[in-house]
């Protein structure tokens, strides 16, 4: 596995909402098997940048490259086809359905009974179990109803689903907000587990403490611009916090 291969390259991204210039020429990179902490204060443009990468908004200016090829996402579906999966704060699971049926929602396996198509429930159960185990989500059974799962477990199921369906990059929007310390640790473990399987993650947060322990690199956004792109070994929580609040002037980008 080549860790230094560029997976995503967003070049000179601009975005206006009406007259507001929310992203002012952002350069953003993600390498293979890398966890990037995307931090910044509220309104810094983190979510907008990620929604562009997930195909929810188009950029007004700038280009996106995946594995070196330029892409032009028209919808989240296009992004998913390229292996980019956004896991929202409000996790995308149907609460009254079982975990297994949720994992395979929209991609249900079928078998034929003569000429009658029938849901392959056995496969759903078996594959769901495998998929949950893969990221270390113990204690969740495919037959459990999502409503009865904790917030962290729900994040886990969403991550497991993305991993199972061969996502290359997970975009997690403040995944540990509203979670207990123990639960947060679990979610971080799922993300690390995904990384061990070669999947990169972007962890959006306004609180550096949430992501510091697992991040390989930290990108700081402020007023729509990158003010810091730092390898974790070369920085401290203190420095990042100062960049977020604007107490320190921007530091040059890694590798530029």
């Amino acid at each position: 596995m080549n860790n230094h291969e560029l997976l995503v390259y967003m070049r000179e991204i601009h975005k206006w909402f009406g007259r507001v210039h929310v992203l002012r020429g952002v350069n953003f990179k993600v390498y293979n098997s890398e966890i990037v902490g995307l931090v910044g204060d509220n309104g810094a443009g983190k979510s907008t940048l990620m929604k562009i990468l997930a195909g929810i908004y188009p950029p007004d200016k700038g280009k996106i490259f995946i594995n070196g090829t330029e892409v032009n996402f028209k919808s989240p579906k296009d992004a998913m086809k390229h292996g980019i999966e956004m896991i929202h704060q409000d996790v995308m699971l149907a609460p009254l359905m079982s975990v297994g049926r949720n994992i395979f929602l929209g991609r249900e396996p079928q078998k034929l009974y003569g000429i009658v198509p029938i849901l392959d429930l056995k496969k759903i159960r078996k594959e769901s179990l495998k998929c949950l185990k893969e990221i270390g989500l113990d204690g969740v059974d495919p037959d459990m109803v999502v409503e009865n799962l904790s917030g962290g477990q729900r994040q886990g199921v969403a991550i497991a689903r993305a991993v199972y369906f061969k996502a290359k990059l997970l975009i997690l929007d403040e995944p540990t907000n509203n979670l207990s310390v123990k639960e947060s640790a679990k979610v971080l473990q799922f993300i690390t587990e995904a990384k061990n399987q070669g999947i990169s993650s972007i962890f959006i947060t306004h609180n550096i403490h949430h992501v510091y322990s697992i991040a390989d690199r930290i990108v700081v956004l402020s007023h729509g611009q990158v003010v810091g792109d730092l390898k974790k070994e070369e920085t401290t929580i203190d420095e990042v916090t100062k960049l977020i609040t604007g107490e320190t002037s921007p530091r040059p980008t890694v590798g530029s």
Binding site: P76, K77, M92, A94, L105, G106, Q110, P117, L119, L121
Partner: peptide, 28 residues
């Protein structure tokens, strides 16, 4: 019963009624 419990479409019915946004996001 067959439609609801044993077909793709049944899964989509549950998801559509349970949380429409989720069903949509998953391509239903």
């Amino acid at each position: 019963y067959y439609i609801l419990e044993r077909t793709k479409f049944g899964n989509w019915i549950y998801a559509t009624g349970g949380r429409k946004e989720v069903a949509r996001a998953m391509g239903v």
